[in-house]
Amino acid sequence: MYSKKVIEHFTHPHNQGAIDNPDGVGIVGNPVCGDLMKIYLKIKKDKKRGEYIQDVKFETLGCASAIATSSMITDLAKGKTLTEAKKISREDVADALEGLPPIKMHCSNLAVDGLREAIEDYEKKK
């Protein structure tokens, strides 16, 4: 059902946990559909590149693909500028995971939404 990559990220997620005093936080999903995701961001400013994601972590209550996409989005977003990070699409996440079952595509949507919400949260607070 799931690709090897999904299982890999599900069983050994990257960047899992919380960040103390995060610069931005995004909480997406809902308990009825079963997946909830929280993305934490630490943002740093660089003279040349502008603002970029220095650190990103996640906490997820959800199915295997929800956990795997959370893990993958942190990998994809880490080190990217905010402009670059906002461009990450749900297809990018699914492709990096070597595909997701069609019924689970909404989960990767969720990871992208979580990241974008966390960036917005940061930008609002600025």
Partner: peptide
């Protein structure tokens, strides 16, 4: 439960 952290409570507190 470690992976889920406190997300459920955070969601309801939101």
């Amino acid at each position: 439960r470690k992976v889920a952290g406190n997300v459920l409570n955070d969601y309801y507190a939101k």
